[in-house]
């Protein structure tokens, strides 16, 4: 059996990327920030995806995280990056915990659509509420870190990458615990899991809450990297669709996959908009079909194949 080197790779790779960011041009640092922020949400969706659950509404938590940062900034003048991040993640986590009581009873398309419905209710409310920025949203000030207002975006990049490393390590560990292993078994046969003596509802509730915390954190970090929030880029169902797309693109094989998948997505989008602006949906849709048909393990399956043939 192969030894699992994931945590080492995450740690060393993460540190190298932080160092690389110090010398990389601005646009690369920006792409990395967007990619890693979004990857946090994918990490949570990966856990659900392994369990056979696809949420077409996680923009709800992503948006909650992002808007919490906006409200903290504008209403309360909170600038500290950690307070904003924790605020966003905790609020989304709390919402996920509460919604989880309902959601843990749903599967398949019903799970997907109830999530969509809830996220679209929030979208509908924000779009029509002037005090929540309506369709325009809010601009957000650059966060301070330990009380210092940074000159560049690099310190924020370091924070985001560190959060990404820690989250990847935590989820990697979680997936090795007994409760964390209860993904494929639940997807394959819930009746058996119950008869073995574990509550499927509790297991799903925990996974769902975790995914909400991660999506909330992702939204908060994304809001700070972008410097603004608006409903269409934070809560609309297209955002949820993007998150699902990146999850499939990444593949469920490893906690590193979401980071690679998110970066590929960022690059794909940047170039697609430059080269063929009218073909974006075609590219996304085509990639979707290609992956589902020819690469069910996503990009990660390519990488792990490569790793196996070289070792």
């Amino acid at each position: 059996m192969l030894r699992d080197n994931t945590s080492k790779v995450v740690l060393i790779g993460g540190i190298l990327i932080i160092l690389f960011g110090a010398v990389a041009p601005n646009w690369i640092v920006n792409q990395l920030m967007f990619g890693f922020s979004r990857a946090l949400a994918i990490l949570g969706l990966l856990v659900l995806w392994r369990t056979g659950l696809v949420s077409f509404g996680h923009a709800f938590y992503f948006g909650l995280g992002a808007y919490t940062v906006a409200i903290l900034d504008i209403q309360l003048g909170v600038t500290d990056v950690f307070v904003r991040l924790l605020g966003g993640a905790c609020l989304a986590g709390l919402a996920g915990f509460l919604v989880g009581f309902i959601m843990r009873n749903y599967r398949d398309i019903f799970f997907a659509m109830l999530n969509t419905a809830i996220s679209m209710v929030l979208y509908g409310i924000i779009v029509k509420t002037e005090s929540l920025g309506s369709t325009d949203g809010f601009a957000i000030s650059l966060p301070t870190i330990f009380g210092v207002a940074p000159e560049t975006k690099y310190p924020l990049f370091v924070v985001i990458t560190t959060v990404a490393i820690v989250s990847a390590l935590l989820i990697n560990f979680y997936l090795k615990t007994t409760i964390g292993r209860l993904t494929t078994p639940i997807r394959d046969n819930e009746i058996r899991v119950e008869y073995l003596g574990f509550s499927v509802a509790h297991a799903i509730h925990l996974k769902y809450t975790m995914s909400a915390i991660l999506a909330g954190g992702a939204g908060a970090l994304m809001a700070m990297s972008l410097g603004q929030v608006d409903p269409d880029s934070m809560i609309n169902w297209t955002v949820s669709g993007e998150l699902v797309f990146i999850t499939i693109l990444s593949g469920p094989g490893n906690v590193i996959a979401p980071f690679i998948g998110s970066l590929v997505f960022e690059v794909l989008r940047t170039y697609a908009f430059e080269l063929a602006p009218h073909l974006w949906q075609l590219i996304v849709g085509g990639t979707f079909l290609t992956i589902i048909f020819f690469l069910p393990g996503g990009i990660w399956s390519l990488i792990s194949k490569l790793g196996r043939s070289t070792s």
Binding site: F173, K176, T177, T178, I179, G180, R181, L182, V193, L196, G197, F198
Partner: peptide, 14 residues
């Protein structure tokens, strides 16, 4: 693992 790791033991490596 389910049979033996009841309660908080479910949070240990399997």
């Amino acid at each position: 693992a389910i049979a033996k790791n009841r309660g908080f033991a479910a949070l240990r490596e399997m």
